[in-house]
Design a protein around this nucleic acid. Structure first.
Lengths: 156, 156
DNA sequence: CAGTCTGTTCAGTTTTAATTGAACAAATTT
DNA sequence: AAATTTGTTCAATTAAAACTGAACAGACTG
């Protein structure tokens, strides 16, 4: 009995942690909690299950699963004899997640590069400093792309 | 003349871009604009200069520079014959920036590891899935630490 | 086909974060 | 030492984001 309670507590805490960390990744907290639920449970959860167990409105679930589907972190599946939509983790959720992170950073780098390209040739200082700043973003992208390859290696 | 206007426009756009991207890194927009200003200009800017050129209150500047100093992205310097504080980029701002990113991600990984450690041995499914999730964060940390080393190599 | 169930949308509300600006203390000047 | 300048603090305001829930359209059921 004690063990049962323990697992539920760990589960609840884990889900909340993922909810918080989702905010760092530009996702609303509820989307993170949905993701955390699906990671922990590892089995398809129905639309209403999610709304009830997370104590949020159906509108929020609809919005969250849309965001998570767009990012290829979860997928919608059907269950025979049930009209509801079910959701579970996508094939390679972490690859997709990392891909999203890389893209976000690469996009910032592009914007810096764009500014860099617009600076006249003879304006040396800003040119050099923006180049260095862009290089920093480039280093991050490279590092994360290496991580992405590692990840793809594991589960091809 | 045309060129002067051009540079100012690029500068203003760059500063705004950094302001926006700062929000991705958990910094308020104004802090990002301060950072963008210091990167572009490359010379110390006074406290009032910043408030005036960014059209924000002194309270906001005070708050922003505090955050940027804490993260070792900028430093406060004195200027002979001027009572004001001046600010410029810190020694290795990008190393510090990346360090902050790595730490933030590592902290999330620790939290997952913590949950993982609390799951009883016989609860296999969640245990395996959390381990995989933690592994993903580990891969990101490794990739970014490699980037951090590259960066330290450049400017030791 | 009337009734029910399901997920989406979006206007309105709530919550959270950012920003302001007035009050303040410390340092400097006159 | 009075007056001024400077940066910080924090309560109040503003702005932005998340969330709710009612209205709706489509799909299914009996």
């Amino acid at each position: 009995m004690q063990k049962e309670i323990e697992v539920d507590t760990v589960r609840a805490e884990f889900i909340e942690k993922i909810g918080v960390s989702a905010q760092n990744e530009g996702l609303p907290r509820i989307a993170g909690r949905v993701l955390g639920t699906l990671i922990f449970d590892g089995k398809p959860a129905s639309f209403s299950d999610l709304a009830e167990s997370l104590l949020v409105s159906r509108g929020s679930i609809s919005n969250s699963v849309r965001l998570l589907e767009e990012r290829l972190l979860i997928k919608r599946v059907a269950k025979a004899g049930d009209r509801q939509d079910y959701f579970q983790l996508a094939e390679n959720p972490y690859t997709s997640m990392l891909d999203g992170v890389v893209n976000r950073i690469a996009r910032v780098k592009s914007e810096i590069d764009e500014s860099l390209a617009q600076i006249p040739d003879d304006v040396d200082g800003p040119r050099a400093r923006l180049a260095q700043y862009a290089g920093f973003y480039g280093a991050m992208v490279s590092g994360l792309e290496a991580a992405l390859n590692d990840l793809r290696q594991e589960k091809p």
